[in-house]
């Protein structure tokens, strides 16, 4: 007997994702799809996906997509939005992509006040390549390139990108959210919607950092991974609005 246990979210294509159990990418995709649907923007949205686990985001979210070279999504998005200011343009980048190899591109996109939205997935590790240390890996956190835990003396402390980028005038709105429970899930949804709406008002760069899980590379069960986001990650990366300026 066939039983439907799951239907694709609004704004999502009817295909299974390749993500690991307990990974939050799928949830963030679904939130983006829902919000685009709600804003009636699926026909006009252009997403830029990163190099990393979300490289196939364009196969899942039901709008047009470009796949960028590692870290270069903000430059690609600049080319898209400047030539097509009427489109709703967003990048979707992980922490290795945005905070490491693409640090220059995101800094300058924000500096110029590029009027697109960044969805920044911070899971404190390189997911696709198998769990190496990221610029966002917490002090003491173990990874395949920091087997004894991240050592401050050797690697410094992890970077808070939302705060760093918010020092620049071009950043109009930055919020850090997580998906560890339903209350935070709704806050995340609201933040994504607000970022997209502000973008269309042309106020400047809008940025949503999502603290996410990587149960596979963290070596945790999905519920434990969610708890770790809520109890440990969010201590170092405080949740909430980091910056909001009027037009």
């Amino acid at each position: 007997m066939r039983q439907i246990v799951m239907v694709p979210g609004r704004g999502m294509k009817d295909v299974p994702t390749h993500y690991c159990p307990g990974c939050h990418h799928g949830i963030v995709h679904r939130l983006i799809g829902e919000v685009l649907d709600e804003l009636q923007a699926l026909d006009t949205a252009v997403g830029i996906c990163p190099v990393g686990c979300a490289v196939y985001a364009g196969n899942y979210i039901d709008c047009d997509f470009l796949e960028a070279a590692h870290g270069r999504a903000p430059a690609v998005a600049t080319g898209v939005k400047r030539t097509h200011p009427d489109k709703l343009v967003f990048t979707y980048q992980g922490d290795g992509d945005l905070a490491s190899i693409g640090a220059a591109e995101i800094m300058h996109a924000v500096m110029r006040g590029e009027k697109f939205t960044t969805i920044f997935i911070n899971n404190a590790i390189y997911g696709m390549t198998g769990g190496q240390m990221a610029p966002t890996t917490l002090e003491g956190q173990k990874s395949t390139t920091s087997s004894q835990g991240r050592d401050k003396a050797m690697h410094g402390l992890p970077v808070r990108m939302a705060e760093l980028l918010s020092t620049m005038d071009g950043m109009a709105y930055a919020e850090r959210v997580c998906l560890a429970d339903m209350s935070n899930y709704h806050k995340a949804r609201k933040a994504i919607k607000k970022a997209f709406m502000l973008q269309m008002q042309g106020v400047g760069h809008t940025f949503v950092e999502v603290l996410s899980t990587c149960p596979t590379n963290w070596g945790m069960s999905p519920p434990d991974a969610s708890l770790w986001v809520k109890n440990t990650m969010s201590q170092y990366y405080p949740l909430g609005v980091v910056k909001e300026r009027e037009k």
Binding site: V46, R72, A77, G79, R82, T83, H108
Partner: peptide
């Protein structure tokens, strides 16, 4: 652009449109 790397990727974005 902030670099030649960014410039060619901006070209990629505009061309894709």
């Amino acid at each position: 652009a902030e670099s030649e790397i960014a410039a060619i990727n901006m070209v990629y974005g505009a061309s894709a449109m």
